[in-house]
Computed example of a mutant assay.
Amino acid sequence: MGRHSGGSPLAIEPAEQRGLAFAKTNCDGCHAIGRSGVSALRIAPPFRDLHTRYSVDMLAEALAEGIVTGHPTMPTF
């Protein structure tokens, strides 16, 4: 998580707060979104491991332009 300059290590920037709220609302039901823990859906990779499966540039583009996937259980954003 982020840190406001000169602030508490637990304080996060507004953009990070929005991203966390989005992930909790839309992703946490299947993916582990924290620094530890397992995904609720076994085949859903934890967010912390996505960079090992996909390039960071590809992930950034997918998140910016909308995620579309081939499997029916993952919503399209």
Rank of each mutant, 00 (worst) to 15 (best):
G2M: 13
H4Y: 15
S5F: 15
S5Y: 12
G6A: 00
G6Q: 01
G7P: 00
P9D: 13
A11H: 07
A11P: 05
I12K: 09
I12E: 07
E16W: 02
E16F: 02
Q17P: 01
R18T: 14
R18Y: 09
G19P: 00
G19M: 07
A23G: 02
C27H: 06
D28N: 15
C30Q: 07
H31W: 06
H31E: 08
I33V: 13
I33L: 10
R35F: 08
S36Q: 13
S36L: 11
S36K: 14
S39A: 11
A40T: 11
L41C: 04
I43D: 05
A44C: 04
A44D: 04
P45G: 11
P46H: 03
F47T: 06
F47A: 08
R48Y: 02
R48M: 03
L50E: 00
R53C: 14
Y54M: 11
V56K: 07
D57M: 04
D57F: 05
M58N: 15
L59T: 04
A60L: 13
A60H: 07
A62T: 12
A62S: 12
E65I: 05
E65K: 07
E65M: 04
G66M: 02
G66P: 01
I67D: 00
I67M: 09
T69G: 09
T69V: 11
T69Q: 12
G70R: 05
H71A: 06
P72S: 08
M74C: 03
M74L: 05
M74K: 01
M74D: 01
P75I: 04
P75H: 02
T76Y: 05
